[in-house]
């Protein structure tokens, strides 16, 4: 029978270990993308089949139309405002509504033809006014 040659176990050379890990390190440093996901968080309202109108007090309507004009105010008292004014108007309305013991809800309604950047600007303004209760009016 053939005899298996006894292999001599050589010493493990740990000196090159550093080089190998260094190469791997450089690879991972290069491939890493520092997370740059920035945006405005928003939670869509749950889907309800039978949409009933919001009947609570303290609702402030914000409309955005095809000509990118903004209409803001309580029901029946809407006025045309510029997008930059939305935040300050909402703050004033928030104080007024809070004085009556209600809390503000902003209801946004946008037309299909309006521009997305204006919609986002309105959301941004609402966030600036520190209002969390936002409702999306849908048909």
């Amino acid at each position: 029978m053939l005899r298996k040659p006894v292999r001599k176990v050589g010493d493990f050379n740990a000196a090159s270990m550093a080089d190998v890990t260094f190469l791997l390190l450089i690879f991972f440093i290069v491939t890493t993308t520092i997370s740059s996901d920035k945006g405005i968080k928003f939670v869509l309202p749950p889907k309800v089949d039978n949409t009933e109108g919001v009947k609570v007090k303290g609702v402030v309507n914000v409309f955005l139309n095809d000509d990118n004009e903004v209409l803001l105010g309580k029901k029946g008292k809407e006025e045309v405002v510029s997008i930059e004014q939305v935040s300050s108007r909402l703050r004033a309305l928030d104080r007024e509504i809070a004085a009556n013991g209600d809390s503000i809800i902003v209801s946004i309604k946008v037309t299909d033809g309006s521009l997305y950047k204006n919609y986002l600007a309105i959301i941004d303004q609402i966030k600036s006014a520190k209002i969390d209760r936002i409702s999306l009016a849908q048909e």
Partner: peptide, 9 residues
Amino acid sequence: PEAVNSEKI
């Protein structure tokens, strides 16, 4: 677009 209240996610 740009937004003032854009936060890191």
